[in-house]
Amino acid sequence: MATDTTFAPPGAPPRAARAGRRPALRRDGRYASVFLAPSLGGLALFTLFPTAMALGISLFDWPVFGTRSFLGFGNYSHLLHDPVFRRVVLNTVLFVVLYVPLNVVVSLGLAVWLGPQIRGRQVFRVLFFIPVMTPMVANVMVWRLLFQPGGLIDGGLQAWFGIDAPNFLGSSNWAMPAIVAMSIWQGFGYNFLVFSAAIDQVPQSQLESAQIDGAGPWQRFRYITWPMITPSMFFATTMTLITSFQVFAQPFILTQGGPGVATQTIVMYVYNQGWQFLQMGLASAAGWVLFVIIMGITAIQFFGQKRWVNYDV
């Protein structure tokens, strides 16, 4: 992230000049505290304090009503031994492993296909972006009807091909793929727009001269387009990884985590512990586990980027 350094610009001014800036610094400082007060106060109260508090709560047996008692790492060791929590982590990882690569392939494929030469591509950009912006709950409702026995998929398969569709949302084999399919439909428009904007920056003249030199479409993509879009690729994969670990509304409404706990995710577990079983300590610990997973993934992405991300093309 580019932060500019105001205090030591290159070729720093001589002392006299710096002394002359001090009153301005002090005056600006007073104004700054006024300008910053709302944001700083809000972030401190509603983000920084709760983050620390979450760690605190996770060390307690903290029922919504009743007495609290200190447990140390008791909640965390409980999570470690809870078969449901283990299953829930596996489910979330499965979702991420299916969702992220598919999303990237679909959105990148379409972005390359719908290159600058295609007429009306702005229409597709807007179209694909619509489910990204419409309320998630409304999107999920539509797909719940779609997957319903007798819904469009089942009805269509029977009427046109004579095949009985499985009960997608009630089958432990099909429920997770169904959730992934719905999520890709809803979410790929975001990455499509990221990639599409990046591809716009690739100079057409380079692609054309490569074509004249006999480079095929794959070679042109691999050696010209790809190196120039790796920063967007990094941004898109990082964002998609982070948000997909937080998946909630899709399984919550499509399957309620079922059948059994086959599609329950970490965030659903946090919600259930906190607001169904009223165990705030356990919910908070599970939330922190999620936070650590996300931080770990982000760190791996950032350290790994040196190997494949190209910032100086």
């Binding site: 992230m1 920084l48 709760p50 709560i57 970490i266 946090v270 939330g287 936070f291």
Partner: peptide
């Protein structure tokens, strides 16, 4: 940097203490 750092914290970590708050 502190401001940007707050973006790292997922909502799911905050909901429990936020509810208590």
């Amino acid at each position: 940097v502190l401001f940007l750092g707050t973006l790292m914290v997922p909502q799911e970590v905050l909901i429990v203490p936020m509810y208590w708050l």
